[in-house]
């Protein structure tokens, strides 16, 4: 499932600083809950990883070691060691290990360029980390946590319905 254009379109105009702030908060939360991610990532933790959702006008560059998150907009991908692109919900499912990266590559849902070794290390580290973004998001929302978690899980199950892993 692609992000509906009615939701993607406002991101053409939304302030990048705001999006970056939100993305960094999620990233910090994930690293706090899953510190083991770094250990499995090894030397690749200093690489610049770019995530380019094909259904959003945004690119997210992450450097795990420095806890850096940069968000940019436009057709041109930012400079990065390794780039992965595909629909947003597929990228999020891969981040959580709910989908198999090889299967998504075989079906051409994903495209990977640049340093394949670094991207493979990240994929394997994420796959072992048992990340639940819905729970992590809920952990940031205080008393609204139950509502946020159940809503996020509902959206996730709808988005991945019928997808072979």
């Amino acid at each position: 499932m692609l992000v509906p254009s009615v939701l993607a379109k406002p991101l053409d105009f939304a302030p990048l600083a705001l999006i970056e702030h939100f993305a960094r908060r999620i990233f910090d939360r994930v690293l706090k809950v899953h510190p083991d991610l770094f250990e499995r990532l090894g030397d690749y933790r200093s690489k610049r990883f770019c995530f380019s959702p094909s259904d959003l006008p945004l690119h997210f560059v992450v450097i795990p070691e420095g806890r850096v998150v940069e968000v940019s907009r436009g057709i041109r991908q930012p400079t990065a060691d390794a780039v992965i692109s595909g629909p947003l919900f597929i990228l999020l499912a891969l981040l959580e290990g709910r989908c198999d990266g090889d299967a998504l590559f075989f079906s051409r849902d994903l495209m990977v360029t640049g340093d394949i070794e670094a991207m493979l290390a990240l994929r394997n580290a994420l796959d072992d980390s048992v990340i639940d973004l819905a729970a992590d998001l809920g952990g940031m929302t205080g008393p609204l946590a139950p509502l946020v978690i159940s809503t996020a899980r509902y959206i996730r199950s709808r988005a991945l319905r019928g997808k072979a892993l």
Partner: peptide
Amino acid sequence: RQRGKAYVAE
């Protein structure tokens, strides 16, 4: 062994 846990489980 190179596949993700979702593949293994399925």
